[in-house]
């Protein structure tokens, strides 16, 4: 039995002359939290729209729940929050939820109140959604995506506009949904540190193409460890490292250097520098962050524009 809940095969979306998504083939396994990483305009949102049925692919195939995406039953098992939440500003949170619940045939007053409580919107009363703050609208959008208890949840930058406490709450909510409801989640975020905390799998997209697809374990293996040296005498440290044969160091700033592929010899380096009378402020082994891994993989800073 195919353990992949979602598979895309050469999925492409072209707007005019722009290939927003280009032959993208990825796999999302059941029960995973799949983090989609990419710069602005990389094609993440367009990809999510196609999975959610909001945009028609130019070519390629989407297989959902083991069947073709044209199967409407599969479509009914998806909840999505794409870009800004789609809510009527002249209606209350409850009324917005109610409309969607009625449209999906799962209206139950108690369940709506439960979902609103889950996202922290149980006290909004008669306040119209148009008067909500950005964070409140985002929470309402998340609550609406959970109507019908979907098997696949698609969240496009769900923590936009949330305060730090809200970010933690949503992170815990996603983990709970994955753990207790066995919900599969596809989530995109620019805050890679947050994504690194919860995602079990990653898909890195650049210029509409899938650059790398890997699990968390594979990412940890891939993210290179290095020795980080902090010292006021950076020039002397550089000379010393070159004498020791560690020429592939990187000067990060006026007091920090990083030396790859020598984590097992950090003690030796420390001793060597001490013998040369070089005072250090710190020396440690650190692992490349998801952010650094992504930047290195996609070729550095700079924005894609659609």
């Amino acid at each position: 039995m195919n353990a992949n809940l979602l598979e895309t095969v050469c999925l492409t979306k072209i707007y005019g002359h722009q290939r927003a998504v280009d032959n993208l083939s990825l796999h999302v396994s059941k029960g995973s939290i799949y983090g989609l990483i990419g710069r602005n305009g990389a094609g993440k949102t367009t990809f999510m729209k196609m999975i959610a049925g909001l945009a028609k692919p130019t070519s390629g195939e989407i297989r959902l729940f083991g069947a073709d995406a044209e199967d409407s039953v599969g479509q009914n098992r998806i909840g999505a929050l794409i870009e800004a939440p789609g809510i009527y500003g002249d209606m209350t949170a409850f009324d917005n939820m109610r409309l969607k619940a009625v449209a999906t045939g799962v209206y139950h007053r108690g369940k709506i109140n439960e979902l609103l409580a889950l996202v922290g919107l149980s006290d909004t009363g008669r306040k119209k959604a148009g008067q909500f703050s950005l964070g409140m609208k985002q929470r309402l959008g998340i609550a609406m995506s959970l109507i019908g208890t979907p098997d696949l949840l698609i969240l496009d930058e769900p923590i936009n506009g949330l305060d730090p406490v809200g970010v933690i709450e949503i992170r815990e909510l996603i983990e709970k949904l994955s753990r207790e409801y066995e919900m599969t989640v596809i989530i995109s975020s620019h805050i890679l540190d947050e994504l690194a905390r919860i995602a079990t799998h990653y898909g890195i997209i650049n210029e509409g193409r899938l650059v790398r697809e890997l699990s968390k374990e594979e990412l940890l293996d891939q993210c290179a460890e290095c020795v980080e040296i902090k010292s006021d005498a950076v020039k002397e440290v550089c000379l010393a490292l070159e004498e020791m044969g560690y020429a592939a160091y990187e000067v990060c700033d006026k007091e920090t250097l990083r030396v790859p592929d020598c984590c097992d010899r950090v003690g030796e380096i420390n001793m060597a520098l001490a013998r040369r009378g070089i005072l250090l402020r710190g020396i440690s082994v650190r692992q490349e962050s998801l952010e650094e891994f992504f930047v290195n993989l996609t070729g550095g800073a700079g924005e894609n524009h659609e």
């Binding site: 049925g53 409407s72 479509q75 009914n76 009527y88 999906t104």
Partner: peptide
């Protein structure tokens, strides 16, 4: 137009393949 302006149709699109 309110349906498109509010973006609410994004919720419907998911459940109405037809």
């Amino acid at each position: 137009c309110n349906k498109y302006k509010s973006g609410f149709q994004k919720n419907l699109g998911i459940y109405s393949h037809k």
